[in-house]
Design a protein around this nucleic acid. Structure first.
Lengths: 223, 223
DNA sequence: TTAAAAATTCGACCGTGGTCGGAATTCTAA
DNA sequence: TTAGAATTCCGACCACGGTCGAATTTTTAA
C-alpha cells in the first residue's frame, strides 16, 4: 500500500518542528524560544505541536538526539581500543563533557533531565543512559581481558562507578569549582586514576589541579 | 535602638511565608502549590512574596533548610566515629538519601538544583555542598589516621570521589534502576567497597544486588 | 506635630507552557 | 462519487510564575 497523504504529512510536520527547533534553539537557546514561535517557524499552529510532542522538553530531546549522535560518532572515530583504560575513559568522558557544556543552558537542562529524570521522561533518559553505559562497559571488558582490571571486578559495577565520576565532573563544572577545560581534564584524570588504584591502598594518586582543589578546599575550610 | 515596626513585620512576614510553605509544600507538593495560594495562606498579597524571595525555588530552599538541618543533626547523633570507614560513609549517605527521596518530587527539585545549579542559585547550593563535603572529609581524615586510607591518598580527592558515588545513588533511584531502599543500601555498600578496594587490583568486591543489577544489565544488553 | 522621604504592599497585568473542542482534512466503503 | 467515520489541526483559553507602579505605611527631620 502506498504511503497516504496523512502519513507523509505527519512525517514532514514532525521534521519541520525539529528543523525549526534546531534553528531556534541554536540561535536563541531553549528558554528564550517559545512554543508559539516554534510553531510559527514550523508553519503550523501551536496546538499541533502537542500532537507530536507531549512537552517542550521532549522537543528539546529530539533536538539533542541528532547532536548526540554526532558526538558519539566523533568519539568512535578517534577511539583507540588499544590505549590504556585510563586514556580511553578520559577521551570518552571528556569529549562528552565538552559537548554537553558547549552551551551552558542547553547542557544544564539536558543533564538535569538525564540524571534525575521525571517519570514522564524516564524512558527517554534511559535510552541515552544505555549508550553511555554500553560504551563504557565495552571499554572495561576489553580492558579486563588485557588484565587492566582485577579479575574479580564486575565490569558492570565498575561501569556505574566510572559513570559516577563522569557525573561529578559535570556537576563540578556547573557548581563553578573549575572554570577551564584544562582543569576539568586534569581533575577527571585524577579521579579515574584514583578509582583504578583504589582509595584504601595502592599506588600514589595524581593530585587534582590546584585551580579545582583550592575552591573546594576553601569551601570545606569555611567555618 | 528599639526594633522598629518595619523590622519586626519583615521578620514576621518572612516567617509566615516559610510556615505557609512548610504546610502547603508538605501537603500538596512543590509543583502543585501556586505562589498565589502561598501568599493567601501567609495572609499577604502575591507581589509581597517577591520582596522576600526572588523565585519560587528560593522559597523551596528556605523550606528545605529546616528539614536539612534536622536531617544532619539526626545523622550526627547516630554517628559512631570509631566504626569502619565503610560503615560511617554508608550511614551518612544512606540517611541523606532516605531524607531526599522521602518525597519524590521534593527530592528531585532539590537535587537537580544542588547538583547542576543555575548561576543564580550557585551560592545557595554551595552552602549545602559545604556541609556534605565537610562531614565526609572529617570522616575520611579520621579514617586515614587509623590507617584505613592509603597514606598518600588525598582526603579531599577521596571526598569528592565518594560524593560522586552518593550522586549516583540518587540518580539511580530517580532513573528507576532500583525501587526499594534495601537494594539501594546494598548498591551503595558495593560501590563504597569497590572504591576503597580499587578497581585495578585488590580484593574481591561485593556484588550489586540483583534487583539493581538486572535492569542495568538488561539496559546494556539491549541491541 | 507634621510633611517630605523611604520602604513596603499588592493586585492588575504580561508572556509562558499546555489544554480543549469544534473545524478542517483525509480515509474508507458502498 | 459520495457520505460518514476517523484523524489532524489550531487558536481561544487556562493557570502559572513573575513584574510593575500606584497606593499605603513607616521613618526621618525640622
Amino acid at each position: 500500500m502506498q504511503e497516504g497523504v496523512r502519513a507523509r504529512k505527519k512525517r514532514e510536520t514532525r521534521q519541520a518542528i525539529i528543523d525549526a527547533a534546531i534553528r531556534l534553539f541554536g540561535e536563541k537557546g531553549f528558554e528564550a524560544t517559545s512554543i508559539d514561535e516554534l510553531a510559527r517557524a514550523a508553519g503550523i499552529g501551536k496546538g499541533t505541536i502537542y500532537g507530536y510532542f507531549r512537552t517542550k522538553l521532549e522537543i528539546f530531546f529530539a533536538f539533542c538526539e541528532e547532536q548526540i549522535d554526532y558526538s558519539f560518532s566523533a568519539v568512535s572515530t578517534t577511539h583507540n581500543s588499544d590505549a590504556p583504560l585510563l586514556e580511553q575513559l578520559h577521551t570518552l568522558f571528556f569529549s562528552q563533557f565538552r559537548f554537553i557544556t558547549a552551551n551552558a543552558e542547553f547542557g544544564r537542562q539536558l543533564v538535569r533531565e538525564l540524571t534525575f529524570p521525571s517519570e514522564a521522561n524516564r524512558n527517554l533518559s534511559r535510552d541515552l543512559d544505555r549508550r553511555y553505559l554500553k560504551t563504557v562497559q565495552d571499554i572495561l571488558i576489553a580492558g579486563k581481558a588485557r588484565g587492566e582490571l582485577h579479575p574479580d571486578c564486575d565490569p558492570l559495577l565498575a561501569t556505574v562507578h566510572f559513570y559516577a565520576l563522569y557525573l561529578l565532573l559535570i556537576s563540578g563544572w556547573y557548581s563553578g569549582y573549575s572554570t577551564t577545560h584544562e582543569d576539568q581534564s586534569q581533575a577527571l584524570r585524577a579521579l579515574l586514576q584514583q578509582a583504578l588504584a583504589g582509595l584504601g591502598n595502592g599506588t600514589l594518586t595524581q593530585p587534582l589541579p590546584p585551580a579545582v582543589l583550592e575552591p573546594i578546599r576553601a569551601l570545606v575550610a569555611t567555618p
